[in-house]
Amino acid sequence: MHDIPGLPRAKGDEPDRKFIEALARGLDVLRAFLPGDGFLGNQEIAQRTGLPKSSVSRLTYTLTQLGYLTYSERMEKYQLGSGVLALGYAFVSNLAIRQIAKPMMQELANNTGTSVGLADRDRFKMIYVEYSSPTNVMAFRHEVGDRVPLSTSAIGRAYLTALPDEERQFFFTHIEKDNPDQWPAIKEGILESLTSYREKGFCHSYGEWDPDVNGISVPLTLGKNTIYCFNAGGPAYRLSRDFLETEVAPQLKNMVRNIEATLIRY
């Protein structure tokens, strides 16, 4: 069994007496809701989670009673409730790195004309927990809670480069399984980014996640299982590879060092 926190248990994993299966299934139901989804029915949730519809029906009923879902009798579907918002707000508001990083991220965004993000891993994707856009400049932007892939985004590649070799190989196996045809090109891009980090101190993705977006990223490791990543990027027509590597990368690396130093004193 893998020992990487935040990942679902795989079939064939040895039983863990401390692991509460019913709780895990309930959380999987909440994870089935993605940004922009609105309402989902039990059948849709069952398809997304792989759980039996009968189990989903009991779980959605329980989560509704607890305030984590709300039910529309007219539509016969569910949407996320205020209980989820309360949990999310508690997480973001108490995240020390977010409070420290925000002003530095905004300064970097204004100085370079790039969008600057802070992300954490959420299973096999990266999720943004903070984001800053430059003032008075048209920029590509994300919202807090948006997710991007580990394999092709700069910020995802930064996370992969910060992992020990054995853990990185675990993610490689998963990415290859989900993208068998594209895997050779994906792996080449990740390894190029890994080389860039070792030689230059930053990772990159130039049109590989989105053809119209260029970005660079730097990881920040705070403990064995705590890796945050910062990126800077935006529209490829305005932010060339040379500009990002020559002008932005030194400032991004310096910002991450300053955030790390501040956290140590925090």
Rank of each mutant, 00 (worst) to 15 (best):
L220K: 02
S57P: 09
L59F: 03
R58W: 02
G83Q: 12
I259Q: 08
H142Y: 06
V56S: 09
V248A: 07
Y68E: 00
S115R: 05
A261R: 15
L95K: 12
L69M: 04
P211S: 12
P8L: 00
D212F: 07
D120F: 10
N111K: 12
Y159F: 15
E21C: 00
G156A: 06
T60S: 11
D122L: 14
L95F: 09
P211C: 00
N214Y: 04
F172A: 01
G207H: 07
D146I: 02
Q43L: 13
T173A: 10
Y89R: 14
R31K: 15
V218S: 02
P184G: 10
D146Q: 09
G41A: 11
S82K: 12
S217D: 03
F171N: 02
F91G: 07
W209N: 14
G234M: 03
L252Q: 09
H204Q: 12
N136K: 13
M1T: 06
Y128G: 06
Y266A: 15
N254G: 00
A86D: 14
N254Y: 02
L85C: 06
G156E: 06
E188I: 00
I100F: 01
T195S: 14
N42L: 00
E176P: 05
R121Q: 10
Q79C: 13
R123Q: 14
R123L: 05
L239D: 05
E130G: 14
Q65W: 00
R238A: 13
L95H: 07
P235V: 02
R168Y: 01
A158Y: 02
R168F: 00
R58P: 04
T226H: 09
D210V: 01
Y266H: 15
L220F: 04
M1R: 10
N225H: 14
E76A: 13
E143S: 13
R48T: 03
G117N: 12
A249H: 07
T112Y: 02
Y128S: 04
P184A: 05
L34T: 08
K102Y: 03
T221D: 04
R17L: 11
Q169W: 00
T152C: 04
E166M: 01
G83L: 05
T195D: 14
R31Q: 13
I175C: 08
P15S: 07
T49P: 12
H204W: 03
I155E: 11
Y131M: 14
S151W: 12
S240T: 15
Q106F: 03
S196W: 00
C229E: 08
P8S: 02
D210W: 00
R58Q: 13
N94T: 06
T152D: 10
D242C: 04
G207N: 10
M1Q: 07
L87E: 08
Y159M: 02
L85H: 10
R147E: 15
N136L: 09
T70K: 13
